[in-house]
Write a protein that binds this DNA or RNA. Structure first.
Lengths: 377, 377
DNA sequence: CTGAAAGCGCTAACAG
DNA sequence: CTGTTAGCGCTTTCAG
């Protein structure tokens, strides 16, 4: 082990106490102002160097306000010479703006949210915003704390996927702070300047319709997600309506509720298998549950799709790689994040009026787990 | 479609121009100061309400400096009454501290980085820091821009996984800014206050050793990751040394270089299959390439592990769910992030001296893809 | 123990 | 067109 290296177990003991001093408690590190260039150089320095007032320097740099071309050039030269970088701290205080957008997600380890965050971040970065990310572990109390804390930090906007249909607290807090909020994946009725959601109901109907009409299944089961989230509610509704539209009626025993996790997908699949007269097809409300379900079926020696056919609402990197490849609804993964980012930017840039709600349509990818030959990629 | 709802295609046209006005260009929204409570209440308001000076109010709230218990109580009452939340903007300017830690990752959609970010965020949140996340898409130019931009934003610290062994720019920038940096997964020699990396070499040796010694393979191939990253280099080295230690010599044709992506995993696997005398076992440098490789093998009708045995350096949610379950090295996924967070906190809290380098040991999970019976979970 | 005053770095009115 | 002045909200000497 090289010098300076330590065993990770030691670190767990020594450097990971449950609570270290936070930013507010820390003594301020003084800037060293070492070479007189780079961070540490102030606008006043630039002004002095250029022989103008700091107001003029500010105008030259920001491009706002009248300024003689020649003066501007002098200032810019000074900026370059001193390698001046305007400090956002002074500007933030003055402008009441942080250049930060808070992003709150239930679980960044879920590939769906990871992709969404990627989309949001790329979008916002292009407009000069930074993303303050908080992962809530799907816990409503953590979500509440996260939003509160981001509001205190004076983020310019918020992009939130709430877990749990948010109560009045969220609505109040958001309204009072006058901070624009965009919801994605799960919307909150009546709150926020916009939302981006999937066509949960339509998509699920597509899936059910395919299983029933194209493949003739009549005993179709459903493994759903949390009903405390709108996506869970809407997908279930889509399942029921899809069944009814196809002339079948939902059977209670075939409708199982999971919580989006692989563990719950496995559990509910086993429950379905234990039934006297089991289903001939199972629809999962998301990919992670479907993956786990497929695994259970393999273990039990049930052939897919011959024994039981499978389909999933939601795809993920790997759905196409499974054996058999999973029939699912597809979308460009970062799209939802990109749109959510666009929505919040629209408000930040133009302070536009009415809320804007976007639904992303879903497309069916017919692979082999439903019984198709697997034409679609 | 409900009122206010629009089709997403319209939005792509109307609200997603390539560049919207950024924070610096926006006119400042004036606080409405509506009810006189909540955000908008200033320390001066509290002081007035409590009948003290703002200096005293500050002392009462921050807990720093001498203050009479009674006075403090009066101030705290005023705080509660007005629902005062200290503005971080004023404090930031004064303290030269933002409470922000920049986190830079190559690809948040990679489950490994997602888990790492989760660990980092949770750790930092516990100490009151926010995480400013940037995803670089594995592009060095984006990484450079990200770090520069975070430094300009005056983050208090940086946690970085660099893609590409960072050149002198990074070293310079980091040193000059005097901002503490912790590297994870990929380290950069001589730069930063710490690093958290996996035991790449040891782990890979474990894998090779198992294949050769336990299962008697003599034609072992390797599908590696980028050699512009230390993890890529170290894993390759581990493979070579492992082979040598087992008394075999590496065969050039069996050593293929991918770039961590599933696509490259598939491509190199096919190249291996095209060989006259192909390998009897393949070791992959990460899970995503292994998944794709397994898929290719399935498609080609090669039985795993009978035809070709498989093992992967790196696991991921789902490795155990594959068919056959994938033999791989395992770790607690968020651990690397947790440790990286601890390391940067240590520096932020104590401004401690020497750099600290941590290696996370890897453990072998014997599943079925290598030929084992699949005892380990 | 408390108050007055200065200032972090920047921008915006308002004069000149 | 440019300089002066006045803060944004907070912390911290320095006196009292």
């Amino acid at each position: 082990m090289e010098p300076g290296a330590i065993d990770y177990r030691d670190l767990c003991m020594s450097a990971a106490p449950s609570r270290l001093a936070g930013p507010a408690e820390r003594a301020s590190r003084r800037r060293s102002a070492a070479s007189g260039s780079g961070p540490g150089v102030t606008l006043a320095d630039v002004a002095r160097e250029a022989g103008v007032s700091s107001a003029t320097a500010s105008r030259a740099i920001s491009g706002r306000g009248p300024i003689a071309a020649q003066t501007r050039a002098r200032v810019l030269a000074a900026v370059a010479k001193l390698e001046f970088e305007p400090s956002p701290l002074g500007r933030s205080l003055r402008m009441q703006t942080t250049g930060l957008v808070g992003v709150v997600v239930p679980d960044i380890a879920d590939p769906f949210y990871a992709a969404a965050v990627k989309g949001i971040q790329h979008r916002l970065e292009a407009s000069g915003y930074h993303v303050a990310l908080v992962d809530t572990d799907e816990r409503v109390d953590r979500e509440t704390a996260a939003i509160r804390s981001l509001l205190v930090a004076r983020v310019d906007g918020l992009v939130v996927c709430t877990s749990g249909i948010a109560g009045s607290w969220l609505a109040d807090a958001v309204r009072r702070s006058r901070t624009p909020v965009v919801f994605f994946d799960n919307a909150v009725a009546g709150v926020g300047v916009g939302s981006v959601t999937l066509a949960n109901e339509d998509g699920m109907r597509l899936l059910v319709d395919h299983l029933v009409v194209a493949h003739g299944h009549r005993r179709v089961a459903y493994v759903g997600g949390r009903l405390s989230e709108t996506s869970g509610v809407e997908r279930l509704e889509g399942f029921r309506i899809g069944l009814l539209a196809a002339g079948l009626s939902p059977v209670d025993a075939y409708v199982r509720m999971g919580d989006w996790t692989p563990a719950s997908g496995a559990r509910e699949t086993e429950a379905l298998l234990a039934l006297d007269e089991g289903p001939t097809a199972i629809v999962y409300a998301n990919a992670r549950m479907a993956f786990a379900g497929l695994h259970v079926l393999h273990e039990r020696g049930v052939r897919v799709p011959d024994g039981i056919a499978l389909a999933s609402f939601d795809d993920a990197e790997g759905g196409a790689l499974l054996d058999p490849p999973l029939t699912a609804l597809v979308r460009r993964d970062q799209q939802i994040g990109d749109l959510a980012g666009s929505l919040i930017l629209r408000v930040l840039a133009y302070a536009e009026a009415g809320p804007m709600h976007v639904r992303i349509p879903m497309e069916l990818a017919l692979r082999r787990s439903c019984g198709c030959a697997g034409v679609t990629a």
